[in-house]
Computed example of a mutant assay.
Amino acid sequence: MDHWTRGGRGRGRAGEGPRHALLAVPLALIAVVTVVDVLAPPEVHLGPFLAAAPALTASFAGPRATALVGLVAVLAQAVVSVTRTTLTDLNHTFQITALILISVIVTFFAYLREQHERQVVQLRTVAEAAQQVVLRPPRERLGPLRVASVYLAAEAEARIGGDLYAAARTARGTRFIVGDVRGKGLAAVGDAALVLGAFRAAAHQEADLPALVAYLEGTVAPEPEPDAADDRGEAFITAAVLDVPDGEHVLHLVDCGHPPPLLLRGGTVTSLDVAEPAPPLGLAEFAPEGYGVQAFVFEPGDLLLLYTDGVIEARDEAGAFYPLADRLASWSGRSPRALLDALRADLLAHVPGGRLGDDAALVAVARVS
């Protein structure tokens, strides 16, 4: 299940055709300037305009194509020189020399740009591989549930960040987690991978939801080393952990400081707010005894939306937050995948330039039986 637009080498190869077609523009420019310069009066010199051809080529093509266009421009300037005066004419000699220097410089910058593009492609490839390991999308069908997911990274080239989600099938039902790691960068990705690994391992072993959350808490906040500085509270993860049994039309929720899930039923959206939410994972010292579980009715035809705060904190140009609940109510009756497709497009249209200020993750779960 592809849960974001793929990048990578395939897209780069697809762009080679249009780039080759664009070469006609600088070549046509060389031809026009050459013809006009040959026919122009003696006091008119259009040779300097030929420098625009390799410079233009460097903006979209690689170093080889740029060097080729630069060579054609130099040859065209030589033809103009021979036609109008001589190749050794001082004015034309300086024009040819300047054109050669400009062509060499822009060819070098085209080489640097191509190297950067290759690094970006490699970064995307590594990010996609990491995403497949860390954020494996859940299967579309999990028992009586239909599931879809989407991840939107704030950084276009990062593809992955500190938001997390996962689903695990157990003997009695399906368990879900959606969370948001405090911070950004590789440290946040590492913390997310740690929690997801612990969730996938413990979801099948821990009998009840509070025990599972306690296990995750121990993963996020391990015992400090004797000689290590006390940095408790520096790293924590907001999370919503759910258990959806196959044989009951109900869901059980432990909310650890995370935005509450939304339940869509017959065009009405309900926020599943728990009476006493627990502190985020990693802040167990502020938690009461144990973790409270709250049950909510989850009937066939209902749709549950799990999300991170990157969705509800997305702002438009006027600074208004994204109205997730209102939008969700207008998409009643859609499948999880169709709903997330509509939500993704609407969310990106809400923010300026289609760029989120924070990572966003969404999981839609529909009960079909």
Rank of each mutant, 00 (worst) to 15 (best):
Gly12Lys: 05
Gly17Leu: 14
Arg19Leu: 10
Pro26Lys: 05
Leu27Val: 11
Leu39Cys: 03
Ala52Leu: 15
Ala55Phe: 15
Thr57Ala: 15
Leu68Met: 12
Ala78Cys: 12
Ala78Pro: 00
Val79Gln: 01
Thr85Ala: 14
Thr88Cys: 10
Thr88Gly: 11
Ile96Thr: 15
Leu101Ala: 14
Ile105Thr: 14
Val106Trp: 00
Phe109Leu: 13
Tyr111Val: 03
Glu117Lys: 09
Arg118His: 13
Gln119Trp: 05
Arg141Gln: 08
Val147Gly: 00
Ser149Gly: 10
Leu152Glu: 02
Asp163Thr: 04
Asp163Leu: 07
Tyr165Asp: 03
Ala168Glu: 15
Thr174Phe: 04
Thr174His: 05
Gly179Asn: 06
Ala187Asn: 09
Leu194Arg: 15
Val195Ser: 03
Ala202Leu: 15
His204Leu: 13
Asp208Gly: 12
Ala211Asp: 09
Glu217Gln: 14
Val220Leu: 06
Glu225Gln: 13
Pro226Thr: 12
Asp227Pro: 03
Asp231Glu: 14
Ala240Asp: 13
Val244Glu: 04
Asp246Tyr: 13
Glu248Cys: 06
Asp255Pro: 02
Leu264Lys: 06
Arg265His: 14
Ser271Leu: 14
Pro279Asn: 12
Phe286Asp: 12
Ala287Cys: 10
Pro288Lys: 05
Val297Phe: 11
Glu313Ser: 09
Arg315Met: 10
Ala318Arg: 14
Ala318Asn: 08
Leu328Gly: 01
Leu343Pro: 03
Leu347Pro: 04
Gly354His: 08
Arg355Trp: 08
Arg355Phe: 02
Gly357Tyr: 08
Gly357His: 03
Asp359Phe: 03
Ala364Lys: 01
Ala366Gly: 11
